[in-house]
Write a protein that binds this DNA or RNA. Structure first.
Lengths: 96, 96
DNA sequence: TCCACGTTTCGATACTTGTCAAACTATAAT
DNA sequence: ATTATAGTTTGACAAGTATCGAAACGTGGA
């Protein structure tokens, strides 16, 4: 495996090594499989499910996005988070 | 998902978030699939493939073992590392 | 304009990390 | 028994990083 990929992977794993971020990621992933259209998860979903403030959530979301695990979209005032399938597949492939 | 499992997972991810440990883990995994019998990876394999000293390698191996990702066995003077399939399956399941 | 949603900046505190050198343990070989 | 080999533990260090909140900010809609 090239070093570049190894770095991508280890960064993704690092992003998932925080329980709150793991939860955010899982919530996004779970929501998608249970809906036909991928409407994503809204910021407010995380405000409800986690016991940390908005700035912290914003920070965690950015980390997940930086690691390539999710993608963030704005619609007007609102933000939604979506899975990045490419990275999910890289992770799966690594474990295969 | 129970909190307990989430903690196990985030610990495993943390263990894989270091490039050297990721490499060690992959080496163990790769070697197994390419051999009929699971002879494991020897310590010396890592000494050759990584550019860090023995104490550091020993430390990393312990972290992987603590995270439940691998199992360490001694035969006389030598040490071999083996995959822990249970944890590998937990990781796969999480990503599914 | 003003509110609601979310972001950024800043900071505090504390914890963690990766690594090595040196000393140590355990096993095997001579 | 002495020596050599394989790996571990300890201790230390420098650097980095983490988590989080308060306060201030930006932005888009009513």
């Amino acid at each position: 495996m090239p070093n570049k990929d190894k770095d991508r992977l280890s960064k993704a794993f690092k992003a998932l090594s925080n329980p709150n971020r793991l939860r955010i990621y899982q919530q996004i992933k779970d929501k998608r499989v249970s809906e036909i259209t991928d409407s994503g998860c809204g910021f407010v979903d995380f405000v409800n499910s986690l016991k940390v403030g908005a700035p912290t959530i914003s920070h965690h979301i950015k980390e997940l996005a930086n690691a390539g695990l999710i993608r963030v979209e704005r619609q007007g005032k609102f933000v939604t988070c979506h899975l990045e399938d490419d990275m999910l597949n890289e992770l799966k492939q690594f474990l295969d």
